[in-house]
Amino acid sequence: MSSDPKETAEPASIETAATAAAQPARLAATNVVETPFQRFLSEYCESKIAIVAFFVFAVILFVAVFAPLISPQNPYDLGQIDIMDGRLAPGSTTFDGATTYWLGTDDQGRDMVSAIFYGLRISLAVGALSGIIALVLGAIVGLTAAYFGGRIEAAIMRLVDLQLSFPAILVALMLLAILGKGVDKIIIALVIVQWAYYARTVRASALVEREREYIAAAKALGLSSWRILLRHLLPNVLPPLIVVGTVQVASAIALEATLSFLGIGLPITEPSLGLLIANGFDYMLTGKYWISFFPGVALLLTIVSINLIGDQLRDVLNPRLRR
């Protein structure tokens, strides 16, 4: 669509008109109707589990971000760990009784609490980073497909369908077999695995939104395609995108852990939760359960809390379930 000289002038006046019209209505109704955010908040809080999940995730996020500050030791500083403390059971103390290993130690004498804090940091970083890149990529592709339609859409959706017909782990396996090991490689693999989910979601809701009057109005005003896409279409397809995003980040974290456990994901220099569990697996058969049990619990809490948040968001943001 070509740009129009009126483009800059018109939307501003429309927007001010809209806000001006909305203002008195909102003022009049303040006592009765909540703002959208308040309504969102109160609907989210209807589920006690969702509230718990939110706080669990907040704690996990805090631990991951501040791991170097709150860990009892730096588990990867060889000066701070003592191999003589290797494989101590949870609750053991050091020889001089100065330190207690609340969750035990691994084979190197590394405090499991610290190892898990650092592991969470790596797992969350990889999951979130790949999730965000995939979200942006998927949203752009999905919006483009829905807005332009025709051949572009057909080609993109054929590609999405093709990829989604293979399970994530197989695509990741294929990519990692080709690319090899490394942090960058696993992020690339996770992005390629995930983008299609976002693209499909965005396109599906954009197809509905595309037919709405406000898009027709924006087109009639002669706005540029990009402006319509980013300022008008994108905000309206955000809710389903956020829901898919939470679930996808959780599954990216799980997938990374799985691949790292299999020995084809992150290198041992980046000890994510998956690698900690893999390490503990070697000692499992001798009954030293804590080396892989506790990192697994941390992984589980992370994934479950994100999924529960996503589940509640899905219910709250779904207009079809609006009561």
Binding site: I49, I277, G280, M284, Y289, S292, G296, L299, V304, N307
Partner: peptide, 26 residues
């Protein structure tokens, strides 16, 4: 339903390890 959410969230490999721990080792 809660169980199914858990089933989705549980990382397969970790559940497998825990099953080995409980049913084979313990």
């Amino acid at each position: 339903v809660s169980g199914s959410i858990l089933g989705f969230s549980l990382p397969t490999f970790w559940v497998g390890i825990m099953m080995i721990m409980v049913f084979a080792v313990m």
